[in-house]
Amino acid sequence: MEGMTRAQVDNAEAKDFALGGKPMRPRDAATLMLIDRSGGEFRVLMGRRSRKHAFMPGRLVFPGGRTDPSDSRVAVADTLHPAVEAKLVVKGKRSISSARARAIALSALRETYEEAGLLIGRSGDYQTKREGWHGFAENGVQPTLSNLRMIARAITPPGRVRRFDTRFIAAWRDDVAVELPGGGPTEELEELVWLPIGNAVSEEIPMITRTVLGDLANRLAEDPSLDADHPVPFYYMRHQRFLRDLI
């Protein structure tokens, strides 16, 4: 996507986003790229969105969604790696707070539970009254953040009815403490599949997802343990052209 004009991006993403609407500020969001490294190749978890949705209908995506401010007040078993937090707090000319960065990371965990029924953390007594986190308490899982890694960041271009400032965050399948047999409590994703990265890029996926999957494949090739200090790409539109920086 790097270097594409706004018209080219609009044309390529016409099936993924409802175009139009008034100008709006992108909302913070997070998506989780859950990676299975148990076999001879890396696989990622993806799910298909309902074709009734205005945002990426029918597309295979990673679990994720909009950040809830209350996520910052959820109790956790450990904290973000300092290098990961440093990448999350970057926001334009000003930085966001550590609490907001924590909320963004935790929203990726919450959405993965709600959409896929996978609870990332460690076994132990856990109590919370926060909406969306009851499954952790019911299954005795304390959310953990220290193993999360930043892979990319992308801001939805202008001219869409919905815009998100999305952080693509990775976790290992080893970090899943509980896998609920019936899936998550929401119906955001109609099916869940584990796909080799090379196969996933050929599926019916949004252009930005294909771009970030390519970034992930390149990252794993040179950095298979996902070092927290590794630079990550940041995609955004400026002066009618889609750009790629490193943060």
Results as ranks from 00 to 15, higher is better:
T156V: 06
T156G: 03
P158K: 06
P158I: 07
G159D: 08
R162M: 12
R163P: 03
D165K: 14
D165H: 13
D165E: 12
T166N: 08
R167T: 09
F168A: 00
I169S: 08
I169C: 07
A170R: 01
A170S: 09
A170L: 02
A171Y: 00
A171I: 00
W172L: 13
W172D: 11
R173G: 11
R173H: 14
D175V: 04
V176Q: 01
A177L: 10
V178C: 13
V178E: 15
E179T: 15
P181H: 11
P181S: 15
G184A: 02
G184N: 02
T186F: 13
T186I: 14
E187D: 14
E187S: 13
E188I: 10
E188V: 14
L189F: 07
L189A: 03
L189M: 09
E190G: 04
E190D: 06
L192M: 13
L192S: 06
V193E: 12
W194V: 05
W194P: 06
G198D: 15
N199G: 14
N199W: 14
A200C: 07
A200H: 05
A200P: 02
V201R: 00
V201L: 01
E203N: 10
I205T: 11
P206V: 03
P206Q: 01
T209S: 06
T209Q: 06
T209I: 10
R210K: 15
R210C: 12
R210L: 11
T211D: 12
V212I: 15
L213T: 00
G214C: 03
L216D: 00
L216G: 00
L216K: 00
A217D: 06
A217T: 06
A217G: 08
N218D: 09
N218Y: 03
N218H: 06
R219L: 07
R219N: 04
R219D: 01
R219K: 05
L220V: 03
L220R: 01
L220H: 02
A221C: 02
A221N: 05
E222W: 02
D223F: 06
S225H: 10
L226T: 04
D227N: 11
D227G: 09
D227E: 12
D229G: 10
D229H: 11
H230D: 09
H230F: 11
H230Q: 11
P231A: 06
P231E: 06
V232M: 14
